[in-house]
Design a binder for these strands. Structure first.
Lengths: 218, 218
DNA sequence: AATTGTGAAATTGTTCACAGCA
DNA sequence: TGCTGTGAACAATTTCACAATT
């Protein structure tokens, strides 16, 4: 199964496995079967095995997967076995919530810098980090070896700001503005659209969809 | 094409079409072709036509789709042509950011009630809404005809609280805790996992994935 | 006996290509 | 002519089922 193209869904499921394995580790399980892992994230055992087999043979026939080891393997695959230096642009509602979002830090996403274009916010403090102005962006990103930028600015200014960020050489951006941004082909952009899931719920309620849906193919 | 099962991806793409149509309306377009609509959300024209054809024949051959009308049709399909009464539980970082998140209000999601189990937060005010205690939950949800609950509580208490919410008769829940929650089959649950997209970016960077990926197949 | 790893089959989702209509 | 609507072709993903292994 070496070298089949890895799909987006597979990668997202790795995040789920990682989460489940973190829980299993806390509960002192040494090994876990594909069935148990599947149950915990509402997937099928076959899918778990197929997903994992893309990356190697991590299990033992008859026994299952070693929890701690598999968790480390997946962390390595996802690239979260290290610390990423992150800058966050836009310290409004969402932005300031994200600064304190524990799950980011727990997975090695270290928000080191905050930026805002609002003069009144520059110099203010969030969780011990001083908000910088946008004119300082390029130098600060370089000096702090930032590899990842989170954008939490209004939709109206998001494209201008993302252009600026791209010009600074950043190759990975997480966008919270509910708008489609254009970036060059060599930049990774993901957009978190929080209204979309509410719309999905709304759709489900009015159309009385077949039940038990939680997240993408996931 | 009547009565093919509508996939999750199709529904998510409807959200995208809705967003694009909102922009087109603002730009005073009367009609739009499947090609233009596809371009705006980075999809293919065939996909746009197929998606829309699930729900009816909204376009005119040779001309395209009427922007205003199509937007209304999609709003109707998504169930956002009305106001939904929403309660938000957990007024921490994420929770208080969501209260002020304009996009929710704009799409008819009216956050009417706030709850928290922290005594110090009860009685405090967010955007003019007073935070209530959890003991009041059932009565308040009923009296205010709440149909949708947003959960922004810590992972550790999320399952207990979601059980409580389900017992109050709520059938649609948006969960922001990074954990898999169990709910009965007749309850719609969606989980917004914000770390997942960061993990995807991290994976992309370390694996130097083929570029230009923005959200699910979406 | 239990459980992985994996080709093959089944299913689901996407794109093609063109007839049909304005 | 231009563009939709859609069946048919194609591609991707998931599930099945079983040999291999402990």
């Amino acid at each position: 199964m070496r070298d089949r193209r890895i799909s987006e869904s597979t990668i997202h499921r790795l995040s789920h496995y990682y989460r489940a394995l973190t829980a299993l580790e806390r509960e002192h399980f040494d090994t876990v079967s594909s069935r148990e892992l599947a149950n915990r994230e509402e997937l099928t055992p076959a899918q778990v095995r197929k997903d994992l087999s893309f990356f190697g043979s991590f299990g033992t026939r008859g026994l299952g997967y070693p929890v701690k080891e598999l968790k480390e393997k997946i962390a390595r695959i996802l690239g979260i076995d290290r610390v990423w230096n992150v800058a966050l642009i836009g310290v409004g509602n969402i932005g300031s919530a994200l600064v304190s979002y524990k799950e980011f830090a727990r997975q090695g996403f270290n928000i080191k810098l905050l930026f805002d274009s609002d003069q009144r916010k520059i110099g203010s403090n969030h969780k011990g980090i001083t908000v910088l102005g946008m004119d300082d962006l390029e130098r600060q990103l370089n000096e702090n070896k930032i590899e990842l930028v989170i954008l939490a600015v209004p939709a109206s200014s998001a494209q201008v700001i993302v252009d600026h960020v791209v010009n600074c050489g950043i190759k990975a951006i997480l966008n919270f503005a509910p708008i489609k941004l254009a970036v060059p082909d060599d930049v990774f952009l993901r957009t978190e659209n929080m209204a979309m899931e509410l719309e999905y719920l709304s759709f489900s309620l009015v159309n009385n969809l077949p039940r038990r849906s939680d997240r993408k193919k996931t």
